[in-house]
């Protein structure tokens, strides 16, 4: 019954979640992130919005893993290059628990709903675990990019001096 309730209020939940995610940016930017809806002029805001919407859909739906992975990947990609520690970067995902408790407070007196809440929480946990993986992968990706960029910068020089064979072909 909780899931049914959540599905009915999916849009409101997603909107609240997006709001709380945007609040992790300085307040003067938050307005811009929330209002500018052009995906090319405002990739951060639009990504946050789409990712939270899709995650809500799956959390109270059938937990399609490819959708979830894609959404947390998009989120992680953006948060990993901004001024956040890993915990700060992903804290916004925990907010969904609070948001759901607020919205569903009236029906949470029902024990069946509480059981479903436990189920919901473990779904969120799963999403967060994935997000940690993705976040870490993005940071590693950056190290990889650094190395490859350094190689490319002088690639032909190195090939000429050291010989082509010793270079891995990063093309």
């Amino acid at each position: 019954m909780l899931f049914e309730f959540l599905r009915d209020h999916r849009e409101r939940i997603a909107a609240k979640w997006f709001d709380s995610a945007v609040k992790t940016y300085p307040s003067d930017s938050a307005g811009f992130l929330a209002k500018q809806k052009d995906q090319f002029a405002n990739p951060v805001g639009v990504t946050l919005r789409t990712a939270t919407q899709r995650l809500v859909g799956e959390l109270c739906g059938d937990m399609n893993s490819s959708v979830i992975l894609e959404a947390v990947d998009d989120l992680a990609r953006i948060r990993a290059v901004q001024d956040y520690s890993p915990s700060q970067a992903l804290a916004l995902l925990f907010d969904i628990k609070r948001i759901v408790r607020d919205i569903a407070s009236d029906i949470l007196s029902d024990s069946k709903a509480v059981d479903e809440l436990f189920e919901f929480d473990s779904r969120v946990d799963l999403v967060i675990l994935h997000a940690f993986d993705r976040f870490e992968a993005k940071r590693e990706k950056m190290f990889d990019i650094r190395t490859r960029e350094a190689q490319r910068r002088v690639q032909k020089l190195t090939e000429r001096v050291v010989g082509t064979d010793s270079q891995d072909d990063s093309v």
Binding site: K35, Q36, K37, D38, Q39, A41
Partner: peptide
């Protein structure tokens, strides 16, 4: 260019 697509809020503003 922003008039071309999508939701209108900011293009408007």
């Amino acid at each position: 260019t922003e008039l071309r697509k999508g939701p209108t809020l900011t293009y408007g503003s």
